[in-house]
Design a protein around this nucleic acid. Sequence first.
DNA 1: TCCGCTAATGGTAACGTTTTTCATTAATAC
DNA 2: GTATTAATGAAAAACGTTACCATTAGCGGA
Lengths: 137, 137
Amino acid sequence: MTAEEPKKTRSTAQKAVIRSALESEKRFVSAQQLHRTLEDQGHTVGLATVYRQLNSLSDSGHADSITIAEKQLFRACAQDEHHHHLVCENCGKAVEVEPPSEDWITTTARVHGFEVTRHMFEIFGLCAECAASAQSR
Amino acid sequence: MTAEEPKKTRSTAQKAVIRSALESEKRFVSAQQLHRTLEDQGHTVGLATVYRQLNSLSDSGHADSITIAEKQLFRACAQDEHHHHLVCENCGKAVEVEPPSEDWITTTARVHGFEVTRHMFEIFGLCAECAASAQSR
DNA sequence: TCCGCTAATGGTAACGTTTTTCATTAATAC
DNA sequence: GTATTAATGAAAAACGTTACCATTAGCGGA
């Protein structure tokens, strides 16, 4: 019964930089990729901080995260609502997609005695550019 | 233009043991869990071998794998066809489910200029038993 | 404006999982 | 049986990620 703590956070330069860097990416990127990007831009941000911010953005719903090849990738998402992605396996570019009714999920789960907590659905493929360059390979 | 090598493999006791151990699980298990299980059963199999076999089973399509909390989990799958799971987040128990038509996937992808290579769709929740024990907590 | 509190940072060490290495074992073909 | 070499296992390396902790710096109040 502990009351909801106000939980004061401070706005720092690093937070702003990380967040804006993530938002300017339309691809899913890893913490390390983002860290390198920031370094290249001349910003000195610790890797630990990048991890921390990315995780907190993900927790607060300001970023989506998926796991590919044992690596966690992040992407900023504007809308707070639940949504899914169409991800390019080559360059990481992603598009948010809207699947048809997901009602059957809870229905199906109930049939098996399950109580749904969450679901994930991601489509992987090659975007137009990557598909083109792959063909000419 | 290298011809398809016959790629001869040898059947070993370890392969058999690992495969049968995985098949007797109706849950998703990690390499380490399976390794411990084998040890408990009196089998002495190297951890590296468990990893190797699990990966090769996954590659050959004889096992499905998902990633939860940075860990890779495996599960034997009888059917070679594409399928999805309803997974208990607590105990790992899984049921194969059949989603409605997935035609819209390729359609949607095409709209965005993507060429679909694969898609993943997993539902997570609590099975009847785990939900019950969670409530009485 | 300065002060004090402490959230946040950053470098590094630690961690856990997975892969690689390499000498040894053993499955297959002859 | 013998030769060949795929497969194994123990340990080390690699990898992504988190924890630690001394230091920095937001922010509210004197």
